[in-house]
Structures are given as structure tokens and as C-alpha cells.
Amino acid sequence: MSSDVVKKIAQLVRAGAALTPYTCPACGTVLVRLKTGELYCANCERTVVLVRSDEEAQQALEVVQLREVRRIVFDKIIQLGKEIEKLSAPEMVDHLRSLSLLLDIYERLAKIHGEAGREKKT
């Protein structure tokens, strides 16, 4: 383990993360549990989900993919929101329709994400 990774882990622990007995399946670095409860690899700089079965792996993958789609939709909502003030009325109507559709999609994704999280806990 490089000294940079050790420094990152130390910074995370000082910020409230906890060392775990688990290691990253990709690189073997010890994982830390963040305050959010997520497991994190300081070497790969990503969260890690531990699973016991192929079914749990599929559920975890779905949650991660939905989260990414939700992030993309959110970014587009912000982008459209910033563009609206510069538009003429007819252009604004088109943007508002798009914004309304994106907000509906975002809301549905949030609902699905919440349901997936509840299923995971049971």
C-alpha cells in the first residue's frame, strides 16, 4: 500500500470513518466505513458493496445504476434551469416542458431507489 493511500485512509479516519476487517475486491486495500455507512476504498477512490449472493449483487448493481441515472437527470435539470432565464417566451415553453418531464423522471427514479433500498434491508 502506497504512502499516499495510507495518508488518505488516515484523513478519512480523522474525519470519522472507521477501519473495517474487509479489503477491496479490486485492489486488496483495507476498506473504511464512512459516516454514511458506505464502505470505501481509498486506493480505488470508490464505494464498495459487499454481497453474499448473485441475487444481492444484482440488487446492489441496480441501486448503483439507478443512482447514476438519477444523478444524470438531476444534472440536466440544473442545466435547463440555468438556461431558462436567457430564453424568449416560446423557447422557454419548450424548456419548461422538458424540465417538467425530467422532474417527473427524477421523482420516479427517487421512488424506485427508495423501494430498492427498503427491499435490500428486508
Rank of each mutant, 00 (worst) to 15 (best):
G114W: 05
T122H: 15
C44M: 08
R71N: 04
Q58W: 14
I112D: 01
V5M: 06
R67F: 02
L61T: 15
L19D: 06
V93K: 08
I84M: 08
E107P: 04
E115A: 06
S3A: 11
M1F: 10
A110Y: 03
T122A: 14
V63Y: 00
R52I: 08
Y106Q: 08
Q58T: 15
D54T: 13
D4A: 11
L19F: 13
G81F: 01
E55G: 04
G117V: 00
E83I: 14
L80F: 05
K8V: 09
Q58N: 12
R33E: 00
S53W: 01
I105L: 10
E85Q: 09
G28S: 07
L19R: 14
S3W: 09
S3R: 11
V30Q: 09
L19Q: 11
C41Q: 04
Q79I: 08
K8I: 01
T29Q: 03
R46K: 13
L39H: 05
Q11Y: 09
G114A: 00
A116L: 12
K82W: 12
S53P: 03
L61W: 08
R108C: 11
A60K: 08
L50K: 13
I84V: 14
E55M: 04
L80C: 02
I77H: 06
A17L: 07
D54A: 15
K121G: 11
A89H: 05
G37D: 05
I105C: 00
V30F: 03
I84R: 01
L109C: 12
E119V: 10
I78C: 07
L19W: 13
I84A: 08
K35C: 13
A60L: 13
R46V: 13
G16M: 11
L103M: 15
Q65I: 06
E62K: 01
K35D: 13
A57L: 12
E91Y: 05
E62C: 12
A10H: 01
L102R: 03
A15I: 09
V32G: 00
R52K: 08
R118V: 07
E91L: 02
S53D: 02
T23V: 14
K111I: 03
R46L: 04
D4Y: 02
G28E: 09
Q79E: 15
E62F: 13
L87S: 00
A60G: 00
C24M: 01
I105M: 04
L87E: 04
C24G: 00
Q79R: 14
S98I: 06
Y40T: 03
E115F: 07
G28N: 07
S2K: 03
G16D: 05
K82E: 10
L12M: 01
K120E: 15
L19S: 06
A42T: 04
A26E: 07
E62S: 09
T47G: 08
V48A: 02
I72W: 00
K86G: 15
T122R: 15
V69A: 02
I72K: 03
I78T: 13
T47H: 12
D104T: 05
S88W: 03
S3L: 15
S98L: 13
A57V: 07
E107D: 04
H95V: 05
D104P: 02
E62H: 12
D4P: 08
Y22H: 10
A110I: 08
D94H: 14
M1R: 03
K86Y: 15
A26H: 14
L31R: 02
R71A: 09
M1S: 05
V49S: 14
K8T: 01
M1E: 05
L99M: 12
T20L: 02
Q79K: 00
K121W: 13
L61C: 10
S88G: 03
